[in-house]
Amino acid sequence: MTDQVMAAIDGSQFSEGVCDYAAWASLALDAPLTFLHVVDNHPQTAEADLSGNIGLGSREHLLEELSELDEKRAKVAQEQGRLMLKDAKERAIQDGVAEPGTRQRNGTLVETLEELENEIRLLVVGKRGETAHQASEHLGSNLERVVRTLHRPILMVSDTFTRPAKVMLAFDGSKTTRKGVEMLAKSPLFDGIPVHVVIVGAETGDNRSQLDWALATLREAGHEAEGAIRAGEVEAALRTYQDENDIDLLVMGAYGHSRIRHLLVGSTTTAMLRKATKPVLLLR
Rank of each mutant, 00 (worst) to 15 (best):
N106P: 03
V147M: 11
I9K: 08
E114H: 14
A271H: 13
H196P: 01
L85C: 06
R105W: 09
L281V: 06
Q242D: 09
D95P: 05
V110H: 02
Q210Y: 11
P164R: 06
R82P: 08
P100I: 04
P194V: 02
E65D: 11
D87M: 12
I54L: 06
Q134G: 11
I9N: 01
K72D: 12
R121P: 04
L50V: 06
I54M: 10
S209P: 10
D246W: 00
A170T: 03
L69P: 00
Q134V: 13
T277W: 00
A31C: 08
T149N: 05
L263H: 03
L169R: 08
P164A: 02
L66N: 00
G129I: 03
I120C: 01
V146T: 05
L155Q: 02
L238R: 02
R59G: 07
A202R: 12
R82S: 13
G232H: 01
R230L: 10
K175D: 15
E203R: 08
E16N: 15
A92K: 03
A254S: 15
R152E: 09
A48D: 05
S26P: 06
D95E: 15
A271M: 12
G57C: 09
Q134N: 12
G266L: 00
L36H: 02
V97K: 01
G126T: 07
E111V: 11
G17N: 02
L250D: 00
P100C: 04
K179L: 12
V110E: 09
R230A: 08
M84Y: 13
I260E: 02
Q242T: 11
V76H: 14
V265I: 14
V18W: 00
A46M: 11
G81L: 04
T34D: 09
S174C: 08
S209K: 15
V147C: 07
V280R: 03
N207S: 03
H196E: 12
L264H: 10
D206H: 13
S258C: 01
P194E: 04
H61A: 12
A216P: 00
L33V: 01
R121A: 11
Q44K: 13
A276Y: 02
D95M: 15
E16Q: 15
K186L: 13
T270G: 09
K86P: 09
L263S: 01
E244F: 00
E90W: 09
R59N: 01
E71Q: 15
R105M: 14
A23S: 10
L50Q: 01
D87G: 13
M272A: 10
L143D: 00
N53G: 14
